[in-house]
Design a protein around this nucleic acid. Structure first.
Lengths: 259, 259
DNA sequence: ACCTGAACACCGTTCAAGT
DNA sequence: ACCTGAACACCGTTCAAGT
C-alpha cells in the first residue's frame, strides 16, 4: 500500500481515500480475537492517527466486514478503552524500570517509587502520539486503569502519607500519572496523516504579546537548535516540583481542613 | 420544545431525534452574524451537551439551512475556537474579580495576581461543562487565548521571575490556567443529555484495590454528604501547592541547567 | 459460533444555483 | 451579499440472515 501522501481534499472535507479492499480468504486468516482487533487498532492509530480508527477502516486490514468487529468489542468506546488497557499493560509494574537502579523500598523513598512508576508510564505513552488524547476522553475505570492508580496510591501510603493527603496528591498529579503533561494546547495536530490546514486568519501581532515573546526569545537563546519546547524537560521539571511540594506537605503533617 | 427526555436508542446508536423544523420567515429573523452563531452554539452546548453541536443541529434554532453557517464560521474547528474565545472574553481581565478586594500590585504579590486570574477563568469555565473538553482539543492560538497567557506571563515577570523560570512554570500550570484540573478521568459523561450506558463489564473487585478503597473510605468519612470528590477544593489545593512551589523556585533563584 | 448484507440515522463540507 | 438544494464521502450501530 502506498504511503498516505498528501491527499487532495474533496467535497466531504475529508481526504478521498482509495483503498484496495483486501479479500483474504477465511482459510488463510487467523480467526479474529479481541487482542487481534485491539492490536490492529493500535497499529492503525500509530500509522495514520486516531481519526483513521473507525470501525470500517479497522475492519479492512483484518480482512473482515465492519460488523464482524462487534463480536470482539462491545462498541467504539470499548475499543478505545481496550487500546488504552493494552498500553497500560506494558507499564513496568513496579519501580524496576531500570535494572541497574538500586532496589527501591517504597517506605523509605516513596518519591523515587512514584517518579519511577510515572516515568515508566511515560516511556510507553510517548510511543503512541494518539494515546494522550484518547486517555483524556476516557471515563471508564478498567482494571488496568485502577491497577496503575492503586500502585501509585500504595507508594504514597507506604511512604507515610495519610489517606487524606494521598487522596489530594493524586488529584494534584492528575493526568500526569499517565506520563504526559496537561498541555496548554495540543500539539499542532494529531497523527502523521494530518494535513497542514492553512487558515485565513492573520497571524497575531507580536507587539501585543511582549511577555510571551520575551520567554520565547529566552528559550530559543538557550536551545538554538530546538524548534519547540523540550517536552521531556518540562515533564520532569513539573514532576519534581510536584514531588517536592508533596514531600513538604507530608513532612509538615498536612491534613485537610475540617468542616 | 419538550425536554430531552431519555430517548430510545435505534439502529444508529444515536438517539432518534424528532425535531419540528422551525420555519421562521427571513423577515422576522434578525440577520445571522458570527456572534449570533457562536452564542447559539454555546446555548446549544449548555442545554444538550457538546455532542449536540453539529452544523445541522445548530442551524435549526437559527431558522436557517446548515450551509448558511459557513458564511459566518470557516468550518467546525473555527466554530469551536469561536465558542472558547467567547468564554475567554468573559474572564476578568486583571486581578480585580472582586471589587472589594484590595488592589493588587503584580510586582508586590505576583502569586495573588496569578491566583486571581486563574480563579476568574475558572468562574467562567465552570458554568459551561463542555468547555473543558473543547479547550483540551483546541490547538489554535487565537488572540483571546494568547491574551490570557500574556496576562499570566506578565504577572510572573512583574513578580521578578526570570523569563526562563516563567516559561517553565507556565508549562507547570499547564491547562490549569483555564481554571480546570487535569483530571485523572473525565466526569462520567459530558452534557445533560448523556444517557446512562450500562456496560456488561462486571464491577472490579474492591479487594484488588485496598489503597484506593482506603482513600475513598477516608474521603467519605470526612464529607458524608458528598457523592464525589470536591472539585473546587482539589483545584484550589493544587493551585496553592503549585504557587508555593513556584515561589520557592523564585526565592532560590532557580535557573534551567545549561547544556 | 462467527461473519455478512442491507439499512438507518446521522456527520462535515463543496459546488452551483437562487434571491 | 447572503442563503438554499443537492450531492459526496464518510460515520456507528441494529437486525435478520447466512455458513
Amino acid at each position: 500500500m502506498p504511503p498516505p501522501s498528501p491527499r487532495a481534499r474533496t467535497a466531504s472535507g475529508r481526504a478521498p481515500v482509495h483503498r484496495t479492499p483486501v479479500h483474504r480468504s477465511p482459510v488463510q486468516r487467523i480467526p479474529l480475537s479481541r487482542m487481534a482487533v485491539l492490536d490492529a487498532a493500535i497499529a492503525l492509530a500509530d500509522a495514520e492517527g486516531i481519526d483513521a480508527v473507525s470501525m470500517r477502516r479497522l475492519a479492512e486490514p483484518l480482512g473482515v466486514v465492519p460488523m464482524a468487529l462487534y463480536k470482539h468489542v462491545a462498541d467504539k468506546d470499548d475499543l478505545l478503552d481496550g487500546m488504552v488497557d493494552r498500553l497500560i499493560g506494558q507499564f513496568s509494574p513496579g519501580a524496576e524500570a531500570d535494572a541497574a537502579a538500586p532496589a527501591i523500598e517504597p517506605g523509605r523513598d516513596w518519591a523515587a517509587a512514584v517518579r519511577s512508576s510515572v516515568l515508566s508510564a511515560r516511556a510507553v505513552i510517548q510511543q503512541h502520539p494518539w494515546a494522550r488524547r484518547v486517555i483524556e476522553t476516557r471515563s471508564r475505570r478498567t482494571p488496568a486503569v485502577l491497577g496503575h492508580m492503586e500502585r501509585l496510591t500504595q507508594h504514597f501510603l507506604a511512604g507515610g502519607l495519610s489517606p487524606d493527603l494521598t487522596h489530594h496528591v493524586m488529584h494534584l498529579l492528575g493526568n500526569r500519572i499517565w506520563g504526559f503533561s496537561p498541555e496548554l494546547f495540543n500539539a499542532p495536530d494529531s497523527g502523521p496523516a494530518a494535513p497542514e490546514r492553512s487558515r485565513p486568519t492573520p497571524d497575531p501581532d507580536p507587539a501585543d504579546y511582549p511577555g510571551i515573546i520575551a520567554i520565547a526569545t529566552d528559550a530559543r537563546a538557550r536551545r538554538p537548535e530546538a524548534l519547540g519546547c523540550d517536552e521531556e524537560f518540562e515533564f520532569r521539571f513539573a514532576l519534581d516540583v510536584l514531588l517536592d511540594g508533596i514531600e513538604r506537605l507530608r513532612a509538615t503533617g498536612w491534613s485537610s481542613p475540617t468542616l
